[in-house]
Design a protein around this nucleic acid. Sequence first.
RNA 1: GGAGAAUUGGCAGAGUGGUCGAAUGCGGCAGUCUUGAAAACUGUUGAGGGUCACACCUCCGGGGGUUCGAAUCCCUCAUUCUCCGCCA
Length: 423
Amino acid sequence: MLQLQTIREKKEEIIKALQKRNLDGTLLIENVLQLDEKRRSTQTQLDRALAEANSLSKEIGMLFKNGKQQEANVLKEKTGTLKEESKKLGEELNNTAEELQSLLYQIPNIPHPSVPSGNTEEDNVEIFKEGDIPILAGDALPHWELAKKYDIIDFELGVKITGAGFPVYKGKGARLQRALIAYFLDKNTEAGYTEIQVPHLVNEASGYGTGQLPDKEGQMYHVGVDDLYLIPTGEVPVTNIFRNEIVNEKDFPIRYTAYTPCFRREAGSYGAHVRGLNRLHQFDKVEIVRVEHPEKSYEALDGMVDHIKNILRELKLPYRVLRLCGGDLGFTAALTFDFEVFSTAQDRWLEISSVSNFETYQANRLKLRYKDENGKSKLAHTLNGSSLALPRVLAGILENYQTPEGIQIPEVLIPYTNFNIID
RNA sequence: GGAGAAUUGGCAGAGUGGUCGAAUGCGGCAGUCUUGAAAACUGUUGAGGGUCACACCUCCGGGGGUUCGAAUCCCUCAUUCUCCGCCA
């Protein structure tokens, strides 16, 4: 959520920047400022009433102490109207604040100046590409057929147990997936991220903290009886570690990595593009999260991008990096780089990582602050990225490493799998 | 799931209706002393709103109530601890 102070000071710039998201925020911002004005004036009136009541109460106390009952009773009468007034003002203040809050929740983050304009993923800008796209034999198969051929992923079995989008990994498929998780966690740890394990269900406050609520409510599975949500990404529990925290400036950089399953309802998406592992309701992901000093956050973002490049280079997968355009940028992000791996048998790119800087947007919701050198608390910056999303990496490996003899295992993974071919 | 106790500032811990935003100790920060450090001593040290700056207002787990006045009384929810039950 944007800071009110920023909206007050940079109204025009914000409206202009939001146009990159193809959003005309004029009315929204105007309403916010109006409500903010109203809130503050109501607050002032309320404060005045409370101040008066407070000093009367003190006087009454003194009078009672000195045995002047009658005078005290006279003053008591006066407090009656003040009480009514402050009650009314208090309600008004609450209503205004609530209305203001819900408007603020509707304003997305301001895109970073380097975000290109554009409407759809077509307008994202490729900034880097690496790795050779293998030339496959004419009978090369998409991963879902490879999965069947070698009996390593069973989609139908998942349908029986749960429903579409919940595959069962078997034998070397399961082992390969576990190897990838361990490998990613090891790489992240080497790079300075602390490995943690977090809950896979979160409460409502956490959903608001990272911005899944209220705007993306329908994307999460909700456990009604206990009012908890299954996490759509590890970002939610990990970043919420810092909700309502004031960290020490000396603690930067704060770096965490966590492996979690992710649950997404993804209602209404069917067709060829969601076949196999391309889109699932449950999948595994290793996430990296950083909390940074505002002046260092873009440096950190670059570092995260380089880190993920390294991993993909080691896996020898053909991939590219995109700078997301305004129209494709997530609600809470200021700048996002997407990583895509080339799925040779499907002849298309698959998103396997999304690395974002949220600047103070999440921190403001989370109330995540740090103490600067003058002892003042300021909002920190939060960042996160996938390193990496498992199913599509798996799909990329299956398709790009297929040979007539079987599926070769990338060299760096063999110590983790203990086999070098799936056949 | 049942019974009881608790929830106060970074931590520990006082405070049961009237200068209590809150004693005290530890920790943190600044200073004195010291060649330096430690010790000792002195000062300082919660968050948010509001203001040019003051004033002022709010916050003692969350929400609601009683009262002129609540950290202190009442209701309710949550969490933690102890005992019992159940269980990986």
